[in-house]
């Protein structure tokens, strides 16, 4: 199976799962933005994405994407370390055309994974999982679909706000490289397109992560300074 046996195939798996995850993030960001404009609308979406069969299938698919992306990342990193050899250079310089992110994708990925764990315990555990386990004690105010409440509780704490912003930063770095890199791996690139893709990568990722950050900051301000009820 070439997706497992060949170096290019392995990269194709990283690329395809990566693009799928970017699409997921885009969807997630759009959903979060709703919370800024309409708390009721947001909760309606939470309700819609509860423990329904389609939401569960979607979640499992998503989990699979993450897992494949992470497993391949670890595997590729190990292979590449081996290929590099045991002896390291005493002096290394990063040429100007080489992005910092491109050489630190694994480290950035680790930060992203830690963020995901944090995020799952903060939100998913109290929402979809609560519903699956049918344990309403886990859910905020006994309603697993009350996402707004959870957001307010979480982002009241400036530590969480900071952690989330760091997390978003890591994702930003990860994606600015990952986006165009995925397309390069799929072969859709050349001297002209690389400039376009890099530009699109930077703009898209920046908008994406800015919107995520916006929602977090919005709720932090709303709860802390505007005294919104929890």
């Amino acid at each position: 199976m070439w997706l497992v046996n060949s170096s290019v195939g392995r990269k194709v798996v990283m690329s395809v799962t990566g693009i799928a995850l970017i699409l997921f993030l885009t969807f997630h960001m759009a959903m979060n933005l709703v919370a800024v404009f309409s708390e009721r609308g947001y909760n309606a979406i939470c309700e819609f994405l509860g423990a329904n069969w389609y939401a569960l299938v979607g979640s499992m698919g998503l989990a699979a994407l993450f897992l494949i992306h992470i497993i391949y990342a670890v595997w590729l990193t190990l292979l590449n370390r081996k290929a590099r050899g045991s002896e390291r250079y005493a002096v290394t310089v990063r040429p100007t055309t080489v992005e910092w992110a491109s050489q630190n994708m694994f480290v950035l990925g680790l930060i992203v994974v830690l963020g995901i764990i944090l995020h799952l315990t903060d939100f998913w555990y109290h929402m979809q999982f609560a519903e699956i386990a049918n344990d309403m004690v886990l859910a905020p105010g006994g309603d697993p679909a009350d996402g707004i409440a959870l957001m307010k509780i979480t982002f009241k704490n400036p530590v969480f706000v900071l952690l989330y912003l760091v997390w978003f930063g890591a994702i930003w770095f990860h994606l600015t490289h990952g986006f165009w890199s995925a397309l390069q791996t799929l072969g859709w690139n050349n001297q002209i397109w690389i400039k376009r893709w890099k530009c699109i990568s930077n703009i898209y990722t920046t908008i994406l992560m800015a919107c995520f950050a916006l929602v977090v900051i919005f709720f932090f301000i709303k709860v802390t300074f505007l005294g919104a009820s929890i």
Partner: peptide
């Protein structure tokens, strides 16, 4: 190793080969 598109190779290539070639290879391989 597996290429992760860091572009260090094209920065150091004495003959200025570019990663266009790598995209080309990926495409043909896929």
């Amino acid at each position: 190793g597996n290429c992760t598109n860091t572009r260090a190779c094209e920065a150091e290539c004495p003959k200025s080969e570019t990663i266009d070639n790598i995209a080309f290879l990926n495409r043909d391989f896929i």
